[in-house]
Design a protein around this nucleic acid. Structure first.
Lengths: 249, 249
DNA sequence: TGGGAGCATTGGTAAGACCAATGTAGTCCG
DNA sequence: CGGACTACATTGGTCTTACCAATGCTCCCA
């Protein structure tokens, strides 16, 4: 783990605790659901104080590696993607412009997922995507609900890839992405022409999945993203123009 | 963060500490490089004992949020991608088959990154990619060094995207990916025909970046991945055949 | 003016104490 | 005999106090 000593042969107590868990988890001696030795006993075995042991174990809890139950014991946890989500949220708080760049990661994942969805989607997957397409159409006048339906449409496509890596990464970014969807909706929902174009684009995406055409699905999805990009460009131009006119007044 | 209380109005000490940091970091009151109040003082202000405060802060250190210097103080850290790397490593240890699926995430990121690289790569980027292509060719007989050069070739492409999200995600998977590269090399380096095809595929990838043709670059990269897939399929067939012949003997 | 020493500050760690939650075993009653 | 309740043991949660280790700052001397 990140606190492994770089050079020092003799480990600090803290490092010994980290190593104890890292080794046993990574080598499979401790598996999901396995119970860890009680704190007092483990502290003794590792020759550290209990507070130190608890510090490290608290860290592992928050990293999602351990699951602690008071009165019962400490168990190896199943990996929890909220850790990734927290991490991305933290990154965003450091760089206010990152939401724009996260779109690149979003496109990466969705375009790969849609290719897999063309191979792997079952009837339930297709039905779900179709339902969210309908929901998207029904909520055109409402940026909040529409944004959510839009997000769920996309999320269903990623789920239809049946790839744990892709769904994990997408899930990690879902908070950021939902925010992004609502924002994009808020800039578009009043213009009927744009709304119609967007609905058509989503429909084409869905149809290409049904047709199991991976290249076309990828292309349609990228076209769909490009509509949003054009939108934002026009919106900036208008903002700039009206800003100028206000200055001249 | 993941330990925020679901229902309880009155927070435990532990939760108060988490909230203290979450609020200040996410709202920008504490920025990268800012120094945090000393432990004893902060413990008093939050009405908790120092060991408890230290537990939470240790967690935040391992999540990459804080940087602690003994004798100096605690500072808000710059996000550290090694946290993601640890997390993926942990996930892998839980599911032995995940390395295969990580390839999907790899393809997602690289195919999006190569599109961006076609727009954004500067002379230094292109030069670096070219150098790793040469290194790859020079190390054809050595799976270890060749695997590394192969990985670095790909990593340079992702870096040329100049997208923080993509480079962050790719960095998080880099340990897994390097392992994957070495393994793939170990199954191919003895067959001159396959090696020649692979070298050509890498060269085509590079040339399409230089040509700034995003669609072609994407396509070439996918073709390159497909060669590896064919390889593995053939390898499985042979394994199955020789397994059968051994049974008949 | 620069270097060294001393002291204050801040983090690192431990022992011991006590509280909170859970699990287990034993007993009693229907 | 089975289920419910109680008591106690176990395990985690938290705190106080003490001491050690590392860094930074200030003052004094050459």
């Amino acid at each position: 783990m990140t606190e492994v000593p770089a050079v020092e042969a003799r480990q600090t107590g803290s490092q010994r605790v980290v190593s104890y868990f890292k080794e046993r988890i990574l080598r499979g001696h401790l598996k999901v659901g396995d119970r860890v030795m009680p704190e007092r006993e483990l502290a003794q075995e590792l020759n550290v104080g209990r507070p130190l042991l608890r510090e490290v174990m608290k860290s592992l809890v928050m990293l999602g590696f351990l699951d602690v139950r008071q009165g019962s014991g400490t168990y190896i946890a199943r990996a929890d993607i909220r850790v990734l989500s927290d991490f991305f949220t933290f990154c965003l708080s450091q760089e206010q412009d990152i939401l724009e760049d996260v779109m690149q990661a979003r496109m990466a994942i969705e375009c790969q997922a849609i290719r897999l969805a063309c191979e792997r989607a079952n009837e339930a997957d297709l039905s779900r995507i179709g339902q969210w397409l309908s929901a998207l159409i029904e909520t055109l006048g409402d940026p909040e609900a529409g944004g959510r339906a839009d997000f769920m449409f996309h999320q269903s496509i990623v789920a239809a890839s049946h790839s744990r890596s892709l769904t994990t990464l997408y899930g990690a970014m879902s908070e950021l992405l939902q925010r992004s969807h609502v924002q994009r909706r808020a800039t578009t929902y009043r213009n009927p022409n744009i709304v119609r174009v967007l609905v058509e684009a989503h429909r084409e995406v869905f149809l290409s999945i049904v047709a199991k055409d991976a290249d076309q699905a990828d292309r349609r999805l990228r076209e769909h993203f490009a509509i949003g990009d054009d939108l934002r460009r026009k919106s900036l131009i208008e903002t700039y123009r009206s800003g100028l006119e206000r200055k001249l007044n």
